[in-house]
């Protein structure tokens, strides 16, 4: 690559980037519970009143044929769905996916260069997860207004997200308003299916993108 277009960008320190801060929970509580569980696991005798109820660690000693009823899964499905909490895919998660992509011309990540910012990501979920379409909207901020690599960066982000998000998501990537000379052109290029598909056929381009994605964490 020839001389970098923006040789002297502003850099954000990694520690200053937004992260998913674990809500400061009382760790001692769960540690104490664990201690309690550990001791209990040593008990062999079932609780007196629960002698005939399934033991957690004990597989049922029932023959295979007896229980393989086909409807069982479906019946249980609804109940079990609730038993597991859902972490929704949110803005921070999208940010985490794309923030560690490397810039094509600096040994820095897109987040360090403030090309992608948490506040410029928007996730919209469909009402029904299974049938409705969901959407991710990302606005990228080129380091300088005539950055010719903006399309490449956008393409890199798109490839990363297409690989990492479930197919129900539509991905839309735009240049942040007023941060690039040829905003509209780039936007068109980035969201045109045909063009993106064509770009992904280009093996040389794909190599560059692979390099950008190789730092993803």
């Amino acid at each position: 690559m020839s001389d970098p277009i923006n040789a002297n960008p502003t850099i954000i320190d990694v520690s200053a980037l937004p992260t998913r801060i674990s809500a400061s929970s009382d760790k001692s509580k769960s540690r104490h519970d664990e201690l309690f569980e550990r001791v209990l696991s040593l008990s062999l005798a079932p609780k007196k009143h629960s002698l005939n109820i399934d033991n957690l660690t004990l597989p049922d000693l029932v023959s295979d044929i007896e229980m393989e009823s086909p409807t069982e899964d479906e019946l249980s499905d609804a109940i079990v769905e609730e038993s597991e909490d859902e972490d929704l895919i949110d803005e921070q998660e999208i940010f985490d996916l794309i923030s560690t992509i490397s810039d094509p011309e600096h040994p820095l990540t897109l987040a360090q260069l403030a090309v992608v910012n948490l506040e410029d990501i928007k996730v919209t979920h469909g009402v029904n997860k299974k049938t409705d379409i969901s959407e991710v909207l990302i606005k990228i901020t080129p380091t300088i207004t005539h950055c010719s690599l903006a399309t490449l960066i956008g393409l890199g982000i798109r490839v990363r997200l297409e690989r990492c998000l479930p197919p129900r998501f539509r991905i839309r990537i735009f240049i942040k308003e007023g941060t690039h000379q040829s905003e509209n052109q780039v936007n068109k290029q980035l969201n045109d299916k045909e063009r993106v598909a064509a770009a992904c056929e280009n093996s040389q381009l794909l190599t560059v993108i692979s390099q950008m994605l190789s730092t993803c964490k």
Partner: peptide, 21 residues
């Protein structure tokens, strides 16, 4: 990739990234 738990999604992504390369 659409698992309910974030940690599972994360590892699925990581594995896919490894596979793509």
């Amino acid at each position: 990739l659409d698992d309910k738990r974030r940690n599972v999604r994360k590892l699925s992504c990581d594995l896919r990234q490894i596979l793509y390369t």
